[in-house]
C-alpha cells in the first residue's frame, strides 16, 4: 500500500511577472512503513510540497492521496491521520509545554484525560519534563523545536510530515529525534521528511528524492544517489608544492580514478571506493614516499556534490536560473491565454 501518492503536483505563487513556480510537477509514491527524504536547496519547493500534502495549501493541479484519503476531497480524514511539524516551530509561546501538548491532544479530539497522559509521555520522550510548566516563550530555540515535534506525535499518526525537523537541534537532540523517527517507523508509521543534509537522509530515509526548482531531479536510495555523485573522495593538502607530482601518482595508483589537482591550494582530490581502508593505505604510501601533508580527509558527498553532479550548477548559482525560470513561466502563461 502506498501511504502517500502524489501525481503531477504544481503550485505557482503570484501571477504575471511576479509568478513563482514553487512546485512544477512533483510525483511521489511512498510505501507504507518507510521513510522518504526530500532533499533540496533553499527555495526548491520542499515546504510547498509538504503544505500541499498536509491540506494547508490548495493544489494548482495534480492529485494527492495521504493515508488513503484524497487531500482535496477528504481533508479532514487526512488531518486525522497525519502529524505535521512545520519548518518553523509553531507552538503557543504563552502556554507552557504541557499546556501546548494538551491543547494539541484536545484538538486531535482526544479526551482531556488522554490528552494529559500523552502530554506527559511526550514531555518525557523529548526531555522537556523539567521545562514542562514554563511558558514556551522561555524555551531555547531547540527546546521549542522539540516541543513542536512532540506536538506532531500527539496521536500515533499513520503518516508523519517533518519539514527540516533537525534544523536548530544540538547533536544530542538530533540523535534523539532520529531514534524517535526510527521507533515510529518500526511501529508502522510512514514518514516524509525534508532536509538539507544528505547525511541525515542517508541515515534515516529508505528513499531519497532530490528536488530543485520545483522538479524532481533525482530519486533513489542513498547508495544509488551517492553512486551518481561519485561516492567518497580522498582529499589531500600537500605541504610542499614540489611534492604535488609525486603525491598525484600515489593517489592515482591507489584509486584508479582521475586525480584533480589544485596547484594554488596544493589540494588533491581523488575518488575512493575503499572507504577508510583506502585512506589508511594512502597515508601509509605518502609516508613511505616522504610526502609531507598538511591535511588529509575522506570526504563524503555533500548536497553540493549532488547538485553539481545532477544539475551542473551549485546551490549558490540558483539566482540566475531563478530569473530564467520565472521568465519561462511568464512565457508559458502568456501562451496559454
Amino acid at each position: 500500500m502506498n501511504a502517500i501518492i502524489a501525481e503531477g503536483l504544481t503550485k505557482t505563487f503570484g501571477s504575471g511577472e511576479k509568478a513563482v513556480k514553487a512546485v512544477s510537477g512533483v510525483d511521489l509514491s511512498v510505501d507504507e512503513g518507510t521513510v522518504v527524504g526530500i532533499l533540496g536547496p533553499n527555495g526548491a519547493g520542499k515546504t510547498t510540497t509538504v503544505r500541499m500534502l498536509t491540506t494547508l495549501l490548495p493544489l494548482d493541479s495534480g492529485r494527492a492521496t495521504v493515508a488513503g484519503h484524497d487531500v482535496v476531497r477528504e481533508p479532514q480524514a487526512v488531518r486525522a491521520s497525519i502529524g505535521l511539524s512545520g519548518q518553523f516551530a509553531a507552538v503557543d509561546e504563552n502556554l507552557t509545554g504541557r499546556e501546548n501538548l494538551w491543547m494539541f491532544g484536545r484538538l486531535y479530539q482526544l479526551s482531556s484525560k488522554e490528552a494529559k497522559k500523552r502530554a506527559d509521555e511526550l514531555l518525557e520522550q523529548f526531555s522537556l519534563t523539567d521545562a514542562a510548566d514554563r511558558p514556551s516563550k522561555t524555551y531555547s530555540g531547540g527546546m521549542r523545536r522539540r516541543l513542536d515535534l512532540a506536538g506532531s506525535l500527539v496521536i500515533h499518526p499513520r503518516v508523519l510530515f517533518l519539514d527540516e525537523p533537525t534544523t536548530g537541534l544540538d547533536p544530542a537532540s538530533r540523535l534523539d529525534l532520529w531514534d524517535v523517527i526510527r521507533e515510529r517507523v518500526s511501529g508502522g508509521a510512514t514518514i516524509l521528511l525534508t532536509t538539507q543534509y544528505l547525511e541525515e537522509a542517508d541515515v534515516l530515509a529508505d528513499r531519497i528524492v532530490v528536488i530543485d526548482q520545483g522538479r524532481i531531479i533525482a530519486e533513489g536510495t542513498a547508495d544509488e544517489l551517492k553512486a551518481k555523485v561519485g561516492g567518497e573522495r580522498i582529499e589531500v593538502v600537500v605541504h610542499d608544492p614540489d611534492m604535488l607530482h609525486r603525491a598525484t601518482e600515489i593517489l592515482q595508483r591507489g584509486s584508479g580514478g582521475q586525480c584533480q589537482v589544485d596547484e594554488h591550494t596544493r589540494r588533491l582530490t581523488v575518488p575512493s571506493t575503499a572507504g577508510s581502508k583506502g585512506l589508511v593505505q594512502v597515508i601509509r604510501d605518502l609516508d613511505e614516499q616522504q610526502v609531507d601533508i598538511d591535511d588529509i580527509a575522506l570526504r563524503r558527498p555533500t548536497l553540493d556534490d549532488v547538485f553539481l553532479e545532477l544539475t551542473g550548477h551549485k546551490a549558490e548559482e540558483k539566482e540566475t536560473k531563478d530569473d530564467q525560470q520565472s521568465a519561462d513561466s511568464v512565457a508559458t502563461q502568456g501562451g496559454a491565454k
Binding site: 494547508l56 479532514q76 497525519i82 505535521l84 509553531a90 507552538v91 494539541f104 484538538l107 479530539q109 506536538g151
Partner: peptide, 17 residues
C-alpha cells in the same frame, strides 16, 4: 504570523474553532 493558524489547520479540528 507565528504559524499557529497553519498548525491548527493541519489538525482534525472544526474549522470555525
Amino acid at each position: 504570523h507565528k504559524g499557529l493558524i497553519d498548525r491548527f489547520r493541519s489538525l482534525p479540528m472544526a474549522r470555525s474553532g
